[in-house]
């Protein structure tokens, strides 16, 4: 690996920019993401920044059990994130659809629609688990390089 690639790898690990996408969440996980960025947990120490536009982001943080209405939006937003990119499923909902399983309004779990890199289970997960999930996704991002993920494989972070 030459010097530029090693530098790039290091910088990708140290600068994960997030885009938060709510796919029908109860807002429980959403406030935990905000808590992870707030003074007590301060994820900015790892270079994490919550971005307004998916074009700027590296990591897509999805919360919620994926409602039928949200499927199209999820696919669009996933396409708008420029590569290399990673997806973190935050909470039990995107992983398994949680207590809403068998609901006719859902089309989950998230793994059916886009490749997920890290699952952070919990209802809601603790902010430190979310930060660990994001750090793991940043590591995956750095190791993956420019290739686009094909196979759906996921690491799991214990809450």
């Amino acid at each position: 690996m030459n010097l530029w690639k090693r530098l790039m790898c290091y910088c990708r690990r140290r600068s994960p920019w997030l885009f938060h996408l709510n796919s029908g969440s109860c807002n429980g996980c959403d406030i935990e993401i905000v808590a992870a960025l707030a003074p007590r947990y301060d994820a900015e120490q790892l270079g994490v920044r919550l971005e307004g536009s998916p074009r700027h982001a590296d990591i897509l943080c999805v919360t919620g059990p994926v409602t039928r209405n949200a499927v199209c939006a999820i696919k669009t937003v996933y396409g708008q994130v420029c590569g290399p990119k990673a997806v973190v499923a935050i909470g039990s909902c995107p992983a398994t659809t949680n207590v809403f399983i068998d609901s006719r309004t859902l089309d989950g779990p998230l793994g059916k629609h886009i490749p997920v890199d890290v699952f952070v289970p919990g209802c809601p997960p603790r902010p430190d688990a979310i930060i660990e999930g994001v750090a793991k996704a940043a590591q995956i991002l750095a190791e993956r390089g420019d290739e686009v993920p094909e196979v759906i494989t996921a690491a799991e972070v214990q809450a």
Binding site: R12, S15, G83
Partner: peptide
């Protein structure tokens, strides 16, 4: 070094 990390990382990202 955060702004430098951000700059290098953005250089390595693809554009639409």
């Amino acid at each position: 070094m955060q702004p430098f990390f951000d700059f290098i990382k953005l250089l390595g990202k693809s554009t639409p």
